[in-house]
Design a binder for these strands. Structure first.
Lengths: 241, 241
DNA sequence: ACAAAAGTGTTGAGAGTACACCCATGC
DNA sequence: GCATGGGTGTACTCTCAACACTTTTGT
């Protein structure tokens, strides 16, 4: 895999044209969110090379010439987690000239919501050290990744308020209490159980599975799943009628 | 430190592959909206060269090595309209490998809202033919620009529903009827006058200028201006309490 | 005085919010 | 039978949406 950090000098190709080399590099970075034990965490990679050696960074890499940005982001996600087919959306493109001290790098940032139980936890193929970090207790991050991560977190919270993507962080089947717990963890506030259930069920994005969760201590809870045919975006009240 | 402008050698990844080494070009495209005679229009440029010669396209250009994406977008806007300091936001980054048939071009799209009276209408310095086109009657566009433009229009309408950026298309001072007319033009629906005024004034983003518009036929209307200290984003009802 | 556009309130409906108790199961 | 979490309804408040007439000016 391309590691944007390991670089060495080579002679230029024969069809060298100075104009071609004044192009910025383009990378994709993917902020990968998951819920781990009622904590919202992100996957980070420990850098091995300068600059920012031994600091943590958001996973990412160069966009290849033949792949789309979405494909590049999905590839990065898959390489790090083994997961495909999860919720992912383009976040923003960061392109300050000095964000990478070596050269001009423009990065198209994505964020992904991954059910923790779907993640492949075997050591990464590129032997790089990865780790899950709580968004509430992050290490110092390389480049402008702190900024990107905070932006992603803001967007995730905002998105939770007017859509129902929260369940994308849960397993295929889940209880309403688990879903409510997820929302409370991410939004950082407690929600009323009856109102929460009324709104979620009223938005019609979930369906009962008919089975019940027997793992807990008290009364078994109905398991729900996402209705594939449902619209994720729940229309909120508009500013203008 | 590596010098990105070094013409004799460049830094490459360890698993160097000539295909990977080619970098995509990065451009910014700016969808420039203005209200012209109660019509929502965009500024387009007629292409003179292949591909898509003689077709219309969204103004844009390469990102220079020393400028940020925002600076590049502002520069393009200024070159085409002479306008600075208007509302502009990043829209989305489009990077399908085949969107430009010549080579890989990733474009960071912005959209700008320009008061029509602020536009410099002298012929462009680069002698390229530019024109304002109604978004409701567009010509065939080059590349994937039709897609970008429709995306921008969707975003603008969506944004109007939960923020109050509409007045960014109007002169410094404007009447509430003009503002309502702007919203109706963009959203494509009529709005109730009393409810509109109550909401706009209630959101506290405007202030009276104390002067009145004497140009119309009937009763002169109060002129308002944007309160510089106001928050543009009006908080809407959330999905979860 | 009349044409033309500006400006102004009220009411009914629906959604949001706050709040407390019974139910099903395992041990 | 008790501990544990699951599940349910109602009343009040507030925002939204629909609706028509008076006021100010120019001619």
């Amino acid at each position: 895999m391309n590691n944007p950090d390991d670089k060495r000098s080579v002679q230029l190709p024969p069809d060298y044209n100075p104009e071609d080399y004044k192009r910025p590099s383009v990378t994709v970075d993917v902020v990968i969110f998951a819920l781990v034990n009622d904590d919202l965490q992100v996957l980070l990679i420990k850098r091995k090379n300068e600059p920012f050696a031994n600091m943590w960074a958001i996973p990412g890499g160069f966009v290849r010439m033949e792949e789309s940005l979405e494909e590049a982001a999905a590839r990065e996600l898959s390489e790090e987690t083994g997961v495909t087919d999860v919720y992912m959306e383009q976040l923003y493109t960061f392109g300050e000239p000095d964000r990478d001290p070596r050269t001009r790098v423009i990065t198209v940032a994505y964020f992904a919501l991954v059910p923790y139980d779907a993640i492949d936890h075997r050591p990464g193929d590129d032997a790089s050290e990865t780790g899950w970090w709580s968004v509430f207790a992050l290490p110092e991050l390389a480049f402008d990744h702190e900024h990107i991560l905070q932006y992603a977190l803001t967007r995730l919270r905002y998105k939770l308020e007017y859509t129902s993507v929260g369940f994308r962080l849960l397993p295929d089947m889940f209880t309403l209490s688990e879903l409510q717990q997820a929302y409370e963890t991410i939004l950082g506030e407690t929600l009323d159980k009856r109102n929460f259930r009324r709104k979620i069920l009223g938005s019609n994005i979930l369906e009962e599975t008919g089975t019940k969760d027997r793992s807990g201590e008290g009364r078994p809870a109905m398991l729900y799943r996402y209705r594939e045919d449902a619209l994720t975006e729940v229309k909120t009240r508009r500013l203008f009628p």
